[in-house]
Amino acid sequence: MTAEPAPFDHEDTNTDDRPSRFKKSISGGFSVTEKVAQYDAWANKYDEDMRSYGYTGPEIAVEYMKRYFKDTNGKYLDCGAGTGPLGVHNVKSTITFFSRILDTYDGLLCCGCFVPSHLEPDCVEDWCRIVKPGGIVFIVMNQRWLSQEPAYNEGKLDGAFQKRVDEGKWELVVREQRDKYLTENVAEVFVFKVK
């Protein structure tokens, strides 16, 4: 049994409003339009802020992309691409990401999107549909949300993943933890192969 992760109480020593921007982005009660407006307002400082919090999700994701996305001519979806830090970290690779809608993809990456008030667990049903058989779906997320976020805790997110395994839609290839994902939080990494 793993220890319960510490709450995220990061406070910057800077005088600007970075902590409130981060905390606001993961708070509930906002419509999709309001959430988009929050991120639009934060976009020019987002990458800088996340680096100051010790966020290493894109670096972790690139390691897994190089390991599992073998077809460099494939079509890969960056789910929740945001400001595109994966593209920046991935410049030495020949993998191309699409943030526009195509009918099918050779793989899908979801990095840092399973956070409060963002993705619902059942979104993975669509991922099984749009990723071609044999394609890879991998998820990099803050492990704490598996126990602390009501939309994901008590097995809700794990259950959504397992349901697709049980239905024969994908298989779990790897589940690993990585230290120092966001300050001292641990990353939970899932790699699935679509059937």
Results as ranks from 00 to 15, higher is better:
Q162P: 04
F30A: 10
F97R: 11
S27M: 01
F30D: 04
A160K: 11
E4F: 11
E11Y: 10
V165F: 13
Q38R: 04
E4T: 09
Y39T: 05
L77I: 08
Y76V: 00
E4W: 00
C123M: 14
N73S: 11
S20H: 00
V91A: 09
L109R: 05
E149F: 08
K70M: 02
K66H: 07
Y53W: 07
W145S: 07
T94F: 08
A41H: 05
M141K: 02
Y181M: 00
P85S: 02
P133V: 10
I101P: 04
Y55G: 04
W42H: 02
F97W: 09
K66M: 15
Q148E: 15
V165L: 09
G74M: 03
D49N: 06
Q38L: 06
C128E: 03
A160S: 15
A151Y: 12
S27N: 03
L119C: 13
P85T: 06
K193F: 08
R164P: 03
D103R: 11
S27T: 14
E120Y: 10
R164W: 04
H10Y: 14
W127I: 06
A187G: 07
V124W: 08
G82V: 09
D40R: 15
F192D: 11
M65L: 14
T94A: 12
Y152H: 03
L182E: 03
M65C: 14
I139L: 11
Y55E: 01
P85W: 03
V62Y: 06
G82L: 13
L172Q: 08
L108H: 12
F8Y: 07
V131E: 06
L86Y: 02
K193I: 09
V174P: 02
K195G: 13
E171Q: 11
E149K: 04
K75T: 05
G74N: 01
G57A: 09
K195C: 13
T15R: 13
Y53L: 13
C79G: 01
E167R: 06
R18S: 10
N44D: 12
E125L: 10
V191D: 11
A37L: 13
L182M: 12
E63A: 14
V137N: 01
S147F: 07
D40E: 07
T83V: 01
K193C: 14
P19G: 04
P7G: 05
D17C: 05
